[in-house]
């Protein structure tokens, strides 16, 4: 069982990182994330103080929107091609498969975002303390974003206009992560990181069951 899940994890990760035909890979969300950080100073002007005051919030909005980009390729292609049916026939629980996919998704999108955050911080003239808080916040918050993303992808897989709907559904669910993540950078926002971790863990705890239920219900 563990060997089977390991093989599936390696496939999931390779597909999400490298991409394939019809799947964009990890590069697209990353470029989107950087593009937002690059465009924001152009729009707002080179006022370093204003940038550093708003920059962390921009990073969080960019991270949230970058998380939505890959939604339509997280679950749908494998459901369509019958992978989930074949795994179910082999007695692999959907919950375990979803958990594997959340981990693979986080590695392919959360970690690159954390690696790109220093570049964004430079473009938005954040100081070292702010960057540290952003990095800690992303470390705590992106697993929750990944969990929400996979859940929504499973819920909307197979629907017409599922990808547009997916974005609309994911944004409200991700709002707590955004509030606590960006809020942790405000003066006196120390509790934000704890609340961020809490909401992230709640999303992680619910996601495998919700997404697995969605996949099973989709078979009827």
């Amino acid at each position: 069982m563990r060997a089977a899940l390991w093989a599936i994890f390696r496939r999931d990760l390779a597909l999400l990182l490298r991409g394939a035909v019809g799947r964009g890979g990890a590069l697209l969300p990353l470029l989107f994330f950087l593009a937002v950080a690059m465009l924001f100073p152009f729009a707002i002007g080179p006022d370093a103080q204003l940038l550093s005051r708003t920059g962390a919030g921009v990073i969080w909005v960019a991270a949230l929107l970058a998380a939505i980009l890959p939604l339509d390729r997280l679950v749908e292609p494998d459901l369509e091609a019958g992978f989930f049916d074949q795994w179910a026939l082999r007695g692999l629980a959907e919950e375990a498969l979803i958990l594997v996919r959340i981990v693979a998704h986080w590695l392919s999108f959360g970690v690159p975002l954390m690696l790109a955050a220093p570049i964004s911080a430079g473009l938005l003239s954040l100081d070292a303390r702010q960057l540290r808080l952003v990095e800690i916040g992303l470390l705590l918050g992106t697993p929750g974003l990944a969990a929400i993303g996979v859940t929504i992808a499973a819920l909307t897989a197979g629907l017409r206009a599922g990808s547009a709907l997916g974005g609309m559904l994911a944004i409200p669910l991700a709002v707590p992560l955004l509030i606590f993540g960006a809020g942790s950078l405000q003066p006196g926002g120390d509790g934000g990181l704890l609340l961020l971790a809490a909401s992230s863990m709640a999303a992680l705890a619910i996601a495998p069951f919700a997404a697995a239920g969605a996949i099973r219900a989709g078979r009827e």
Binding site: R11, L15, A20, V21, D78, E80, A81, G82, F83, D85, Q86, L89, R90, G91
Partner: peptide
Amino acid sequence: GRIALCDERLPIDGH
């Protein structure tokens, strides 16, 4: 006994 299914789909990555 374990069941295997072969239907019209091919659960294999195209690339």
